[in-house]
Design a protein around this nucleic acid. Structure first.
Lengths: 174, 174
DNA sequence: GCGAGTAAGTCAGCATTGTTGACATATTTC
DNA sequence: GAAATATGTCAACAATGCTGACTTACTCGC
């Protein structure tokens, strides 16, 4: 009598096909909704949107990034990118420099105010992450990082991990 | 000599202000990009987008959901919701029934084909989650769930956890 | 039963951010 | 010098958010 009861309490071990992890699917939605929503409020005071945030973030983290690399990270078209990049350049948040070895390339870097905005946005997102980690227990950090890395498409995973590591060795800005 | 070396290896314990967890910020972006991107491919074959997915998902998980509850979950306007809901109703994926106690309410339920589509989408997302969990180690599941719950805004957290639990007691569909 | 409040639907217009297609410019490479 | 490459740009369109204004149907309190 205890075996069937246990099985009922643990759907993951029920007969195939396996039950979907609906709790995680939904928590990812709610977590992401609030994670980006908070940054949106800051961005709105500058007249920017999420698209601007993504560009500013990666340029800040990977100074000297080229257009082609950025397109590869964001997976959008150059027309979409150019629209928001123009806003950031016109607003004095990002500067473009001609490439050294190849002058066709535009190396993107943040200006002083671009760096300040990028850090302000990182700060509010960091605070939320730090709070979530402290609630979940500090030992969950590496588990969460491994899980998130595993969610990235296999064909792109090595590239993503390389980018994340590249940004990190530039060191913390704060 | 070992103390400063350790400190350099653990920026979280460095002097305030604390270093931002850039790796997690970026992994959240890449993980979410690929998580929803895969479902988008399936949705496109039906002529639907992400907005349709969200509606279909929650109606499938919480049968009898009202418009007001759905608006509260998705945090969009009724005009935006109505646009995609109409597509789903016209396509025969969702049905509306008059409320029992209050006939002004529309109780939303999935049709047979709506349920099938919702499950197909849940299946591809489940596969990615299962793979990420197995790579990260199965013991990471609860840590990830706690972290994600902690990322939800505090004012909405109890509500979100209640919704996730409510969906769960309906039992796995597969 | 009547008036106020509530749940939902709708019309019109607009902003952001994605798309495709076509073409231009500057630079490098062979 | 020709072909390939990196980037920019114009135009049009689609998906999905938004605001504001108004309607319909129903419930509730008196």
């Amino acid at each position: 009598m205890s075996a069937p009861a246990l099985q009922r309490l643990d759907p993951v071990r029920s007969t195939s096909p396996v039950a979907a992890p609906y709790d995680l699917i939904e928590l990812i939605f709610f977590a992401y909704r609030d994670f980006v929503g908070e940054a949106d409020l800051v961005l709105a005071t500058y007249g920017f949107g999420r698209a601007h945030h993504r560009v500013l973030h990666f340029v800040d983290r990977l100074p000297g990034l080229t257009i082609a690399e950025l397109l590869d990270i964001l997976r959008i078209t150059k027309q979409s990118l150019n629209r928001v990049l123009r806003d950031l350049v016109d607003g004095g948040f990002i500067e473009q420099r001609a490439g050294v070895a190849d002058r066709r390339r535009r190396l993107l870097v943040t200006t002083r105010s671009g760096e300040a905005l990028a850090r302000e946005l990182a700060r509010v997102q960091s605070a939320r992450i730090a709070q979530a980690l402290s609630e979940a227990g500090e030992d969950t950090r590496s588990a969460v990082a491994r899980f998130l890395a595993g969610m990235v498409g296999e064909s792109d995973r090595a590239h993503v991990l390389e980018l994340v590591a590249r940004g990190r060795i530039n060191g913390p800005h704060l």
